[in-house]
Design a protein around this nucleic acid. Structure first.
Length: 459
RNA sequence: GUAGGCAUAGCUCAGUUGGUUAGAGCACCAGAUUGUGGUUCUGGGGGUCGUGGGUUCGAGCCCCAUUGCUUACCCCA
């Protein structure tokens, strides 16, 4: 702020962070500031992810960055970036408007669906790659501004959608070069069933939050947390075999069915998972390991069926994707009974992983092949037709603005890894024989414009 | 929201128990080379030491506050 003059500043959306203005902040790390190679790599990645869009034949959507408030859970609300809209009116007391930067892409998608319900053909699929904001404490792999790539389908309760999402994860992450990652799947109905069999349906949140930490704090830690939350030793004894499920997916399911025999909803969850596994068996995954993981409890607020989480096993990083099914997401905006399912890629975390694994091709940002150097106005004018001729022959060419010393222009070419330089001075303009230099070897020769085109086209 | 660590040049960092004019590497600019980069040599510009207060004859260093960054929690992509 304060960088656009008085007029400009009046139009800026000011952001509140925990009630304090963010001023005099030059670089605010963990907010995105992409440039050069980084941006190029990101575009490369987005391209692959977005290619999934056409493969699954979805619509694309760009939603506004401003999110309606009060649509997230209480816990999520703590992480929302609130906004103070800078009002241009001459009110004496400035009013803080009730706006926030969007927290995710799912809720704005739900709003969009409700607003355009009459124009939309259901089932409606959409793919969306856009930034979201969280007022979180940033740390490794956790940003205040980050890109999510969301794929959702609304208006279909078929479990084929769940299977398709698993295939999208597998396809996109494989294309990006990941070699070892797991897609964990669970079902909210199974969690409900577990709560039901120990007669603790009201405490399902406490239960799942505790179980979710199993791999971090171990069984003892989970037990301790559950006891603190009012669960009894008898409850925990009943839970143990469920929490400590072992074996492959089939074996786990069999044990679960046994444990959940008394719970209709729990068994339904088992059925759903089994159906999805059945679909995936018909079209095996390339790379991903699909694992039933009943400790998975994310997004409990609105998920009602399948729950997904993707983790890379190559790098220490939080989940790089998540999603699930929500039976009534649009309900909060007044449209009841519309079921949907969706997944999200954490684009920035995926980027971090790819970079750590060196999966971006080296030198992928070198695009200019020829730099035209010139010395004065005459050289500038002489060079323009050559610039056009080279570009029309699909040779990426830059013309250095005249006025700099040749040394400066060469340095520019060198720093930008431009392989060829054409020097145009008085002699060249007179004879039409241009100085053509190969930067790698340092060899120079005198060539006509046509000869340069021919030479470069041969490469 | 909880608990640590850090803040010195554009970047990465030195800076002794508190003591002259705060240093290095890289980057940048100029020259050696008036039309030639990448190697080399010479010189140069760059700093309110995050901000505000305090202790002291004297603070980059000690104390307090504040802001920001960062790591691990909570939670999440």
């Amino acid at each position: 702020m304060g960088k656009y003059g008085e007029e400009g500043d009046r139009l800026i959306f000011k952001v509140l962070d925990s009630g304090e203005y963010l001023e005099k902040t030059l670089t605010y790390k963990k907010l995105l500031d992409l440039s050069g190679q980084t941006l190029h790599q990101r575009q490369l990645q987005d391209k692959v992810l977005a290619s999934m869009d056409s493969k699954t034949n979805s619509d694309t959507l760009n939603s506004t960055i401003l999110a309606a408030q009060g649509k997230q859970s209480e816990i999520e609300s703590q992480l929302i970036y609130f906004i103070n809209e800078s009002l241009t009116s001459k009110r004496i007391t400035s009013e803080i408007s009730e706006k926030a930067l969007r927290y995710d892409l799912t809720v704005p998608f739900a709003r969009y669906v409700v607003q355009h319900q009459n124009e939309i053909t259901f089932p409606f699929k959409r793919f969306q790659v856009q930034p979201v904001w969280r007022a979180d404490r940033p740390q490794r792999g956790r940003y205040r501004e980050f890109y999510q790539c969301d794929a959702d389908v609304v208006g279909s309760d078929s479990l084929l959608n769940e299977a398709e999402f698993i295939m999208i994860y597998d396809e996109a992450l494989t294309q990006l070069g990941l070699k070892d990652f797991s897609i964990k799947i669970n079902n909210r109905k199974i969690l409900s069933g577990i709560a039901q069999v120990i007669d603790k349906s009201d405490n399902i949140i406490d239960l799942t939050v505790a179980i979710d930490k199993l791999d971090k704090i171990g069984l003892d830690g989970v037990t301790k947390e559950l006891l603190e939350k009012g669960f009894t030793d008898a409850d925990i004894d009943k839970l143990k075999p469920v929490i400590l499920l072992e074996g492959n997916n089939t074996e786990k399911l069999a044990s679960l069915r046994e444990a959940l025999a008394q719970s209709e909803i729990g068994l339904k969850g088992c059925d759903e998972i089994e159906t999805v596994f059945g679909y995936i068996e018909r079209c095996p995954l390339q790379t991903a390991k699909l694992e039933l993981d009943i400790t998975l409890a994310r997004g409990l607020n609105y998920y009602t069926g399948a729950i997904f989480e993707v983790k890379t096993n190559e790098v220490n990083m939080g989940s790089i994707g998540g999603g699930g099914r929500y039976d009534d997401l649009t309900g909060m905006f007044g449209l009841k009974g519309l079921t949907g399912a969706g997944i999200s890629f954490g684009a920035d975390r995926i980027y971090d992983v790819l970079e750590e694994l060196n999966l971006f091709p080296a030198g992928s940002n070198q695009t200019t092949q020829v730099l035209i150097c010139n010395f004065d106005k005459a050289g500038e004018l002489y060079s323009l037709p050559l610039l056009q001729q080279l570009r029309r022959n699909n040779i990426n060419t830059e013309l250095y603005p005249a006025g700099a010393k040749i040394k400066k222009q060469m340095e520019y070419a060198n720093n930008k890894n431009i392989p060829y330089v054409v020097v145009i001075g008085g002699d060249e303009m007179q004879t039409g024989l241009l100085t053509f230099k190969d930067m790698a070897s340092g060899v120079q020769e005198k060539l006509t414009a046509d000869e340069i085109v021919a030479k470069l086209n041969r490469d």
